[in-house]
């Protein structure tokens, strides 16, 4: 009998839903990053108009190593990503933006004869100078 032309029926799986909900978010993030990096390298190779073998040659590696890198399962070192980025002319690591710097300065906390706490230099002065963030003050 001729069937109606239609989209596939949606199948919902309790088993898959439960497993998806129970995943370790760190492992999931690592898997995702490995795959996204591989995809970016794949795009970089294609943008150069190279095949896997040509890229292997440029990297001084066997094609089987490149296959592994591109499979999205490989845990790259930052040195390797730098090297690949230079060969492909793409940026795989973003380290050029200035990191947030929290500056710490030692303080002396004393208690006088009237049980008053004294901090030197004064906390107010340090805050005005931007030495302490709010979080660091809370740590004090």
């Amino acid at each position: 009998m001729k069937q109606m032309r239609k989209k596939a029926e949606k199948h919902s799986s309790k088993l898959i839903n439960e497993l998806m909900a129970g995943r370790d978010k760190h492992t999931t993030a690592m898997t995702r990053n490995r795959m996204l990096l591989a995809a970016k390298i794949d795009d970089g190779i294609k943008a150069k108009g190279w095949g896997k073998s040509q890229f292997a040659e440029k990297m001084g590696k066997e094609p089987s190593v490149i296959t592994k890198w591109l499979s999205g399962t490989h845990n790259f070192t930052s040195d390797r990503l730098t090297e690949i980025g230079l060969v492909l002319g793409i940026e795989l690591l973003r380290v050029d933006s200035k990191p947030n710097i929290i500056r710490y300065q030692p303080v002396i906390v004393t208690q006088n004869s009237e049980n008053e706490i004294q901090v030197s230099p004064e906390l107010g002065m340090l805050i005005n100078e931007g030495i302490f963030s709010q979080r660091v003050i809370a740590d004090c």
Binding site: I16, L19, M20, R23, D24, T27, T28, T31, R32, M35, L36, A39, G72
Partner: peptide, 15 residues
């Protein structure tokens, strides 16, 4: 199995 689920999710949504 968890690894396969992770990969399928990335394939479907991102790559």
């Amino acid at each position: 199995i968890y690894f396969i689920l992770d990969r399928l999710e990335v394939i479907g949504n991102e790559t």
